[in-house]
Amino acid sequence: MKVEIKFGGLGGQGIITMGFILANAAALYDGKECVFTQDYSAEARGGASTSEVIISDEDIDYPHVEKADYLVLMSTSAYRDYIHKLKDDGILIIDEDLVRLPEGENRKVYAIPATKIAEKLGNPIVANIVMLGFFTEVTGIISPDAMMQAIKDRVPKRFWEINERAFQEGMKHAEKNL
């Protein structure tokens, strides 16, 4: 099994963090081979931001996404920039309020109002974690436990609770709507 995932959005949305948490979960808590790379060009809010994760049962040679199985997007510009990286039978996972898909996009799309859900939780900054919860439930390629451990590795203890709720909300949204 080899899965390639590409995340895209804008600087400040936690696009790098999403990739890192997923990769960390796969490598350390699900015991998979895993490579995580990120684009360093936009660290400030507003610029394009992307990260990539490859998860495999075998050694990974080429560390970049050749053709993504999943493209996880949080901005329309990211759709334009990275859609060519998605396999023809690949799956789009998007924040439905932030990504406007063009007519004729026929691939399978899973959509979630992640930013709005995060706002309701009291902190829009956890929108990426909502997305990750949604991603985890939709794809089934990673265990929720591994993801939660990886989230705890990444965020300070005082934010564990809100992140856990954000992750759960994302998972629930998938259960409810799909």
Binding site: F20, A27, C34, V35, F36, T37, I60, P63
Partner: peptide, 9 residues
């Protein structure tokens, strides 16, 4: 630049 910033186990 690739190895420096790339993550693996």
């Amino acid at each position: 630049g690739l190895l420096a910033h790339m993550y693996e186990r």
